[in-house]
Nucleic acid binder design. Structure first.
Lengths: 196, 196
DNA sequence: CGCAGGAGAGAACGCTCGTTCTCGCCTCAT
DNA sequence: ATGAGGCGAGAACGAGCGTTCTCTCCTGCG
């Protein structure tokens, strides 16, 4: 049996392309077989069901997405630059020709009403992103409240870029983020906000 | 034939509940029949296919959503209050017990990869919302650029509220909107931004 | 009163899809 | 070399779904 781990990666990688571009329910296991080069038999001995494959796909997507973001952010040094770098990275993401929004938002929209596991996975992913951004923001000495607001800008940019098919929302969000950073750099040092 | 128009409304209304709560592909025409009280035969003489019913559902949702928003905004008088009223209305929307995000974002995530009509419908809806918010913003004497940024806050709040299951994002977005309004009320009167 | 026409209930049809089974082939230990 | 075991290819199976058909009943008009 040639490398169970490698075969799983191969399957998830093929499934990722298909699920992300066409949606989950629109992709049959036959399509995953064709794209991965693995037989149906092998697919089903690597994953007990399609749902398991879907969850693995989301899992891997979460890991890779956050890693790619962190990798770009780490190329900047000051905390302020790192916060802005998040929106720069969004811009390069949106510019990819096959960009079709956030896989977790899409999966939530498609399966959130019938699959609690998908909801939980989406929630975990968004929570992790929030925690990451809030950490970057608090590193600049600003309150977590600002971090939550920047999360909303980022999420809004993600869906708006997907639906309009442009990458412009990233720069709009970045500009708004700059203004909010500025607003929180002034007088918000004395009275605490008591949020989170 | 008792009122073709009324029967269509009945069908679309039933479909709306089902599609919104469970997703589109997860709802069969049998479920629409049971929920609407109409027979399958009647459904198919009212709509040529399920896809037509889906598009009518989105159409109606778009009309009602924008009308409800405008209705609430119109209860306020000054342009500044009206802009903020948008986020107040989002809060009441998010607080509905069966809230599950924006039907257009969800449909886009589910069918955007395989149905150009759904993509077009989502694009129209979001464009109309953008135009509306930008009009409110420019009525305050501020640039359209700010309107685009507030759109991102609203969109981000919509998806974040859906996934986290809280209505808090509405107030976070409202606070951020207030700060951005403030930022644009100061020095941005002399040098134009040349956007839009 | 009788009949034609339309409506509803539900069976039926054809297709798709998730999942499993069959069969033939290749590999490798003895 | 040989037999057994595991693999790939694809057929098969069962369920679900979009769509249509059948049959029966009700209604309304002559």
């Amino acid at each position: 049996m040639p490398d169970r781990e490698a075969a799983q990666d191969q399957a998830i990688s093929a499934a990722e392309d298909l699920f992300y571009s066409r949606g989950i329910q629109a992709v049959g296991m036959d399509a995953v077989r064709d794209a991965s080069g693995l037989s149906l038999k092998r697919l089903y001995q690597l994953f007990p069901s399609k749902e398991a494959l879907v969850l693995q796909f989301l899992n891997r997507r979460d890991r890779q997405w956050r890693q790619a973001l962190a990798h770009h952010v780490d190329t900047h040094t000051t905390p302020e630059e790192q916060v802005i770098a998040v929106f720069e990275w969004l811009h390069t993401w949106f510019s990819k020709p096959d960009y079709r929004g956030c896989a977790f938002i899409n999966s939530f929209g498609e399966l959130g009403g019938i699959s609690p596991e998908v909801v939980a996975q989406a929630r975990r992913h968004k929570q992790a992103f929030r925690d990451y951004l809030v950490a970057l923001v608090t590193a600049t000495g600003r309150p977590a409240t600002l971090g939550d607001q920047l999360v909303l800008l980022a999420e809004g940019a993600i869906t708006t870029a997907a639906i309009t098919g442009t990458s412009q929302p990233a720069t709009q969000a970045r500009d708004a983020a700059r203004l909010l950073m500025l607003a929180y750099s002034r007088h918000d040092r004395a009275h605490s906000d008591g949020s989170q």
